[in-house]
Design a binder for these strands. Structure first.
Lengths: 156, 156
DNA sequence: GATGTCGTCATCCTTTCGGGTGATTTTGCG
DNA sequence: CGCAAAATCACCCGAAAGGATGACGACATC
């Protein structure tokens, strides 16, 4: 969490410096202060939203839930079932919550980049999780990982 | 979510107006632009963080209520549903039998090369079928194609 | 015979994935 | 606090996948 403050300070400082530097170029224009205000407002609002999302991201510990899944669907409504994940399999395979999260996003057809954006992490991190999850699942490709995950009941 | 945008606009507008109004009081001071920048930055960063919190909190609460539920269902066999393919969708999308065949193999986690071996055709042919099928499904990746195919009921 | 669809195969090029390795930071827990 | 697990990030490299385009033959249909 220390890094967030650092980033905040850096961005702020850079922006202030930029303002100070560019002041002599645009201050002769009309309404430059308002433009500055709007610019800074937009930038920092975006940054704040990002930061807010980032620091409040769900960090819940795994709960102990013993669950068996219910199938028996007439193949017409593919959704709507709550999907009780098979935590048993997940645990025995050593798949972490984060890895499962990424597996689920893979199953939904997202690319690594999209997953990275969705989870506010770098693409490299996603790839690392992927590699670990694939290894634990014995899969060589993401499609295979999805297939295995569904077989084992750890994916909807 | 619409209300957030409204609040955002209101706060922004008010701040801009305030800036414009107070310009004539502080513009004579030194570094007024930097002060404006810092002020606006802090305010909007705080606002952004608040917005981020607000947005994510609701999701978390929903998640909370859903999570700790203990389901118990007779451990039945997966029911062996024969999967009646939705030929309707397939036809309207213009997906040929061969393309569907390759889609099914993709869903099973095979690579293009493995599919080519399985079907006794060249890898290029498989890729062509893939491209066509992906285009008809509106998918950019094979995982997405599988997801779409299952949604539409043309894949088990 | 002209037309259209389907399956087949190719080439070129770009992007994405996956494997491997190493590193730092965060977090949970005793 | 200190340790271990988990999460994060980076870099490299080769393989796989994907896009675009063109081509050819079989087959059906009008």
């Amino acid at each position: 969490m220390k890094r967030h403050a650092l980033i905040f300070g850096l961005v702020g400082g850079t922006l202030i410096a930029t303002l100070q530097y560019t002041e002599y170029r645009f201050v002769v224009l009309e309404h430059s202060v308002e433009l500055y205000g709007a610019l800074v407002a937009v930038l920092f609002a975006a940054f704040g939203i990002w930061l807010g999302l980032r620091i409040t991201r769900r960090r819940e510990t795994i709960r102990e839930t013993v669950v068996l899944k219910e199938v028996l669907v007439p193949a017409e409504t593919p959704a709507l079932e709550p999907f009780a994940p098979n935590t048993e399999q997940q645990r025995t395979l050593g798949i972490t919550a984060r890895e499962l999260e990424i597996l689920a996003l893979i199953a939904r057809g997202l690319s690594n980049r999209e997953i990275a954006t969705e989870l506010f992490v770098s693409e490299n991190t996603v790839k690392t999780h992927c590699a670990r999850a694939f290894d634990k699942l014995g899969a060589a490709r993401r499609t295979q990982a999805v297939q295995r995950g569904k077989e084992l009941g750890i994916l909807p």
